[in-house]
Amino acid sequence: MKPSKAKDERDPGEALALGIGIFVVVGAVAAPLALRQSPATPPVHAPASKAVAPRGLRIPHAADVLRLDGELDEPSWRASARTGSFLTGEGKEATPYSDARFAWTQGALRVGLYASDEDIVAARVPADGPVWQGDAFHLVIETDGVEHVFDVGPTCVLADGERRDGERIDYAWQSDAKLACDADGTIDVPGDMDEEWVVEMEIPLAALGLQGTAGERAEVRIRRCDVGSGQRRGGCGEIAPTVLILGE
């Protein structure tokens, strides 16, 4: 991972005002923007729709040992279950491209998140801070009506929380997830061309309320929003609600 430079100095108020201005000016094309969200807005207010019937994704059991380094190079990643490209609200392949892949072991759910990105921007915030102010994935894993929320950006700062019964997210909850990230490019350097960033993560099954038994299920929703500078600000893409099924 490359050293980073000072963060974008635009404060949230300016960003919000800019966002409002843009919204007014391009009101005629507001619909396509509906998926976009202000980096100052916690993504919890705009979760992926649950109205769509979830699809199923059987995820394979992995036997190898994961070396958490942000490189999805273990054999189990090649056999992992994949979401395919994230999509826009119109059902088209979202750009920048994103995808996610899953495997599980006896103790953990493995999640690999890939983000193509020509201008990588990280929110300089502490753990459990508003990670979504920069480039970030917003991952919700729901079991038994409890949402486990993970926001993670290219520097691997994680905001994890839990929401029960539709209440506010409790960021005091800790998943004890282990993760590593790798960025190919220069984080927070707007003038150059970056390639991508990757998150490699292991989430303890117990934190998700899973026992580690084949056939167990959890619903997952993922959204990724791109925060670039100027014209290099992409939109958001997401996957349809998906039921992960622990395979044999």
Binding site: E93, S116, M193, E196
Partner: peptide, 13 residues
């Protein structure tokens, strides 16, 4: 001129 849109995961375009 830059052409890197030959099949690798798109950043844009």
């Amino acid at each position: 001129v830059l052409f890197g849109n030959g099949g690798a995961p798109l950043a844009s375009g």
